[in-house]
Every structure is written in C-alpha cells, then in structure tokens.
Design a protein around this nucleic acid. Structure first.
Lengths: 132, 132
DNA sequence: GCTTGAGCTGGAGTGCACTCCAGCACGTAA
DNA sequence: TTACGTGCTGGAGTGCACTCCAGCTCAAGC
C-alpha cells in the first residue's frame, strides 16, 4: 500500500502520515526497492483507532504513549487498559457537558423563536441569563 | 467588579478577560477614576455562556460573530437563533461520535481485562481491529 | 513621601497539531 | 531520453487561542 493510497483510504494527508510516523504514532513501514513506504494493510485499522481517540479529545502525547505501549506487547496490557478507562471517563464527562449545553441551545432557540414572533425589541434573551 | 474579582468568579485569567475584550467577545466595561475596568455584574452570565459555547467546540470566530449580533440588538434574533441551531446540530453529531467511541472503549477495556486474566502474550487486541 | 500591589498598554512568545516547501531521486509513458 | 508524476528528507511556516512581558500609572498604607 503506497502512501497516497493509505492517505486516500484513511483520510489523513500524506504529510500527516509521515508526521505521525516521525512522532511515533505509526510504525515505520518497510520500503520498496526505490525507498518508498509500503504500508501493510493492518495499519488502516490502527489509524482509524487513532483517529477515534483524536476525535474524542485524546492528547497527542497520550496517543504516542499508547502507541509506545502497544509496540511493547503483552506486558503493557494493564497500562493500556488503564489509559482507555481514563479516556472513557473523560468521554463520559464530556457527554454530560454536551447534553447540558444541548439543552441550553434548545431553550435559547425556543426563546428566540418566541421573541421573533412577538417582535419585541425591548427584550433580549442574553440579558436574562438567570433562566439558565 | 474589578478584573481580579471577575477572573476569580468566572475562572478565566485576567489576561484572557482583556484578550476577550480586545477581540470583541466582551464589551469594554466602564472605567473607574484611575482608568481601571469596572465590570457590571451581568457580564458574568455572558461569560459563562461564552464558556459553554467554547467548551462544546464553538470556534472563536463564531463566538465573536454571535457577540457582534448580540450587540446589535433585537434585529439579529433570527441570525442568532440560526447560529445556536447550527451549534446544537454540531453538538448532536459530536454526541453520536462520543457514544460510539465510549462503546469502543468499553469493548477494548473488556478485551484487555480478559487478556490480562488469560495471561496470553500471543494475543493483542490492537491486532484484531476487525471486531470494531 | 516612599513602598507595595493592582491594573494598564502594546506587542512578543507559547504550545499544539499539523502543513508546506525546496531540492533531490526514482521509474514509467511518450 | 526526456518529461512527468510520485515520493523522499529536513526544516520552516501556519492558525488557533491564549499567555507572558516590559515598562508604565495610580492609590493606599506605613
């Protein structure tokens, strides 16, 4: 798998793939006769997993740490599990936050809708923050 | 309300409060006789609201846009509502993502737990990404 | 009346996570 | 065989959202 193919398949840019290799997120793949990267298919699953950690707010340093542990094999199961548990807890906290703000958005949207209907320029939802 | 008091009350640093004023997120407050900022109490609610937009991923440029609209009064109700609706939709998308990755974390944690019990160094959850 | 501490300004610096670039090598198509 | 496309490297640049700093003013307490 050439780097351009991997890039197309995983959605990361070619530059980002090389950058991820440089910082230790992706193992350096074997090279072809011309010195070009030739990725194994399995890397796709790993990159997608990294992407999911990224999309849910895991820091680069932690992802690098996780990749390191993974490289070290079975002796690091416990620590990897601990990292994932910590991340899950952060996700849970984030979910609570999102749910609260989503409710707030619904509330404010309803308020604005009412004001638009009333056409009352004296009243402004931002002024009555007490209701949230 | 002095800037140090506001900072303590809202959790933003003094520098950040001045920065927010500079970029138009917070209205320039009146000054005391010595030229020091003297914030009205109401700013606290507004800052908390900004914080919630921030914490749920709204971009600085959009928060500035919202603050601008708010400054313009009742004529911008519709656009403000539209912004909040858009943001709510982004929150909903984000919630789906978080729920999926949370489930994945649970799954992987269970897998690791099992492997730790089995003490089987041949088997590595990261290698079997097919199961997610 | 001098020190201390809080606040002021404009501008420079930081950390993160990429993203871009110059200059070079290789290999296939015309 | 020359042109083109793709890839390579090391290093510089970017955008975002702050964060820090130097050098100043002011007001109050000792």
């Amino acid at each position: 798998m050439k780097i351009s193919e991997l890039s197309a398949a995983c959605g990361l840019s070619i530059d980002t793939l090389r950058f991820y290799e440089k910082i230790g997120l992706i193992d350096p793949p074997p090279r072809d006769s011309a010195g070009r990267r030739d990725y194994p298919e399995e890397v796709l699953g790993w990159i997608r997993f990294l992407d999911q950690l990224n999309a849910t707010g895991m820091k680069q340093a932690d992802r690098i740490r996780y990749a390191d542990l993974r490289r070290q094999g079975a002796s690091t199961y416990a620590e990897r599990r601990a990292m994932l548990e910590t991340h899950r807890d952060e996700i849970i906290a984030r979910q609570a936050e999102l749910a609260a703000v989503r409710a707030l958005m619904d509330h404010k949207v309803a308020l604005y809708r009412q004001l638009e209907a009333e056409h009352d320029p004296e009243h402004d939802p931002e002024q009555e923050t007490a209701d949230v």
